[in-house]
Each structure stands twice: as structure tokens, then as C-alpha cells.
């Protein structure tokens, strides 16, 4: 049974359509990537899964219909989200930001806090710092950490490396790999850079203008010259 299975998903902002009949699935333990340019609809897709955007179509999680579920329901079902703009609580400390993530997973606080501190030792050192005074890389860590505090089984990660220094990107990629390998998390990651996405994901979906225009493994997609030009910098 797929972890998440989406059929014919369309999403609208007022009259503007941001997603057109998107269908995709991710299996338990798998990491998939959604690749697309700015404005392709990547964030809208993740927001839709999370129940933040109105949409039509069907979303199933582990076989159950979760179309129209609220964000709180999705969190309780085990979906963690690290959004593009982080959406942290700027005037709260790192520790309090993480604790808000534990709102629905209060029994697991100690265990999850340990795991987050092992993945991001810097957050343990900076636990009393307000996130408004942190660097982009540190905020990304808090954002991922907050998502992990919800005890997720699937993690949605929206453009995790955008605007970050190359060294930090490598660090974040390493953490995402460990989450999958060591903790068995299912991951959906969005990216503009297909090469980075391929270093993490087994399968890729290409999103253009709100539509899935290609899907497959790295080898399959690399055969398409046009795609290779647009997304692999070839």
C-alpha cells in the first residue's frame, strides 16, 4: 500500500489554477523528488497534501482517503512538513519552536528531542537563541527539527537548500539521507536542481506549469535530451 497516493489533484488560488490533474505516489521508506522551476506548483502540491490549500481530486494515505483533511489531522496521521519559508516562530527560542512541533506528540518529546539534537548538534548548542536572529541554515535545521518533533512517518521537504551555502546544502542532504536510511522515513523533497534531487531520490516527477510532464528513475529521465537540458544543466 502506498504511503501517499494522489490522483487527479487540481488546486486553485481564486480563479488561477496552480495544479492540473497531478497524480503521483510514494511507497513506504522511499524518497521521491518533485523537480520544477519557480512557479511550477511544487509548494502548492506539498501544501495540498498537508490540507492547507483547497483542491479537487483524491489524496490517500496508507489506503485511507484523506482528501480535505485538516493540517492537524495530517500531522496526527504522521505527516511532517518543512515548508519553503520555514514558517518558524521568530520571537521564540529554538527549544520552544521545537516544543511547538511536539504539540500532538507529547509522549515522544524526550526521544524526539534527542534525535533532533543528534542530527543537528548546533540546535542543542543554540537552544536558547531566538530564531529571528539565526542564519538561513540554522533556520532550516529548526524547521526540519520541528517537523521531526511531530513523530512523522513521512516528511515533506520544500526546497531545503534554496539560498543556503554549498557546505550547508551538503549537511542538509546528509541529514535527509540519514532520516531515510536510519529511521526509515518516507520523504518527498522538492527541488529546482535535478542533480541535487537525484543525489537523494530514487524516482523523480517533473512539474511544469502545475502539470506532471515526466516521471521515472534517474536513468530513464536522463535519456530525454530536452529534459536533460532543462533540469540537469547538461
Amino acid at each position: 500500500m502506498s504511503m501517499i497516493e494522489i490522483e487527479n489533484l487540481s488546486a486553485f488560488y481564486g480563479k488561477a489554477q496552480a495544479l492540473r490533474n497531478v497524480s503521483l505516489r510514494v511507497e513506504p521508506g522511499e524518497t521521491i523528488a518533485i523537480v520544477g522551476a519557480n512557479g511550477a506548483g511544487k509548494s502548492t502540491l506539498l501544501d495540498s497534501i498537508m490540507g492547507l490549500v483547497k483542491n479537487t481530486g483524491t489524496i490517500r494515505m496508507e489506503g485511507q482517503d484523506v482528501t480535505g483533511a485538516k493540517p492537524g489531522d495530517m500531522v496526527r496521521r504522521g505527516v511532517g512538513y518543512a515548508p519553503e519559508r520555514f514558517n518558524l516562530f521568530p520571537h521564540m527560542t529554538v527549544r520552544d519552536n521545537l516544543l511547538v512541533g511536539a504539540y500532538t506528540a507529547r509522549e515522544d518529546i524526550d526521544k524526539n528531542m534527542d534525535a533532533v539534537h543528534r542530527l543537528f548538534p548546533r540546535l542543542a548548542e543554540r537552544e536558547g537563541q531566538e530564531t529571528s536572529t539565526q542564519s538561513g541554515g540554522e533556520r532550516q535545521m529548526v524547521s526540519l527539527g520541528r517537523a521531526l518533533m511531530t513523530s512523522p512517518r513521512i516528511l515533506l521537504v520544500d526546497e531545503p537548500t534554496i539560498g543556503l551555502a554549498p557546505k550547508v546544502c551538503v549537511e542538509i542532504a546528509e541529514v535527509l539521507r540519514r532520516l531515510s536510511a536510519e529511521m526509515g522515513l518516507t520523504v518527498i523533497v522538492t527541488e529546482q536542481n535535478a542533480n541535487f534531487a537525484l543525489s537523494l531520490a530514487s524516482r523523480l516527477y517533473v512539474l511544469e506549469g502545475g502539470h506532471v510532464t515526466a516521471e521515472g528513475t534517474a536513468v530513464e529521465l536522463a535519456k530525454d535530451d530536452q529534459l536533460a537540458k532543462s533540469y540537469f544543466g547538461a
Binding site: L52, P71, G72, F86, F89, V100, Y103, T104, R146, T150
Partner: peptide, 8 residues
Amino acid sequence: KGAAISGV
């Protein structure tokens, strides 16, 4: 939004 995706 940050609160909502934390389950609040």
C-alpha cells in the same frame, strides 16, 4: 501556518 503544520 507554522502553527498549523505543527498540529495546532
